[in-house]
Simulated scan of single mutants.
Amino acid sequence: MKNLDRLLVSGSTANAVTDLVIPALLLRAPETTWSELVHIYVPHAPTVAFSGRDLRSPGIAAATEIARAAGFETVVRSPGGRMVAYDSGAVVIDHLDRTTGIRHAGSATFAANAESHVKVLRGLGDIDARVGEVDGEYCPGEYSVNVAGTVKVIGSAQRVTATGSLFSTVVQVVISDRVRAVITDVSEALGYDLRQSSVAGLADYGPALTAGQVAAAFEADYRSRLDLTDGKLPAEVVAHASTVTPGVKPFHVDDWTRANPVPGV
């Protein structure tokens, strides 16, 4: 097998749906010039990213209406888990790996990523970052990252296909009132238990922190730890993802990417 690039890509496309479609398209591409690609960005638009599991809730229509009324784009993301909401106070990390397969899915991958993320947070200052689910958190997971065992600040979800894996992470840095409210209201509509005090951002513990600073810290970690080279997203993939026109219902990333592969890729 020829040597392929291992890339770090920084920055949002400035469109919430496009940012979520791009990793799904990259994961489905039959051939690429890279073996591993990590895309780290600060989202521009408020987004509620549902999962396939959320769609099975009888409250999904109400949850969608609530999110849209609050000014959030509604998308069904490619990875699993449950609903997550964020805006420009967050950092999103999409880690694509063409060398992994179904054998890499599961707890070992989640555990390794969570431990790495904890080290980054501890390096940002006096933040008591830990791995583990906290009582009543949204999108609950054994390998969530919390602060002091009381609030969730990082959650991850995975998607594995025949062509590789996508490990997606949301880091909550500055939680705005609208994000807190939509997580609460959408969780209630979906019938999920939520302890409102478990919703927090890193800036609640390090007030000087910004999403940009946290994104830079994660970029440095991934660049060093995985020996990545700075690069750009494939222009043809970005252009194709930008043709999406979301409707009233939550835009389903996997449905669209299956029906609309990148021409010539």
Rank of each mutant, 00 (worst) to 15 (best):
D227I: 02
V199H: 00
E188I: 12
Y222T: 04
D177N: 04
R180V: 03
A216M: 11
Q213L: 03
A211R: 02
V170F: 09
A208Q: 15
V199M: 01
S224K: 11
A216C: 13
Q172K: 01
Q196V: 15
A215G: 06
T169H: 01
F167K: 04
D230Y: 02
F218W: 11
V170C: 12
Q196Y: 03
D230V: 11
D185L: 05
S198C: 06
Y222P: 09
V171C: 08
Y222L: 00
L166H: 10
G201R: 01
S224M: 07
T163A: 14
V173I: 05
S197Q: 14
E219L: 04
L166Y: 03
D230K: 13
F167A: 09
A211H: 02
I175H: 14
S176R: 08
A203I: 09
V170N: 05
A203P: 09
R178L: 11
V182F: 04
D193Y: 07
L194Y: 05
A162S: 12
G191N: 11
Y205M: 07
A215M: 15
D227G: 11
S176Y: 14
L194Q: 10
L166Q: 09
L202F: 03
R195W: 09
A211L: 08
F167H: 14
V182Q: 00
G164A: 13
K232H: 08
A189W: 08
L194C: 03
R223F: 02
D204V: 02
L194I: 10
V173E: 01
R225Q: 07
D177I: 04
Y205S: 05
D177M: 03
Q213A: 11
V170G: 06
V214L: 12
L226R: 13
F167M: 12
F218N: 10
Q196C: 13
L202Y: 02
T163W: 10
A200E: 05
D204H: 06
L209W: 04
I175F: 08
F218S: 05
T169D: 02
D221L: 07
A203H: 10
A208Y: 14
T229H: 06
A211Q: 06
G164L: 10
V186P: 01
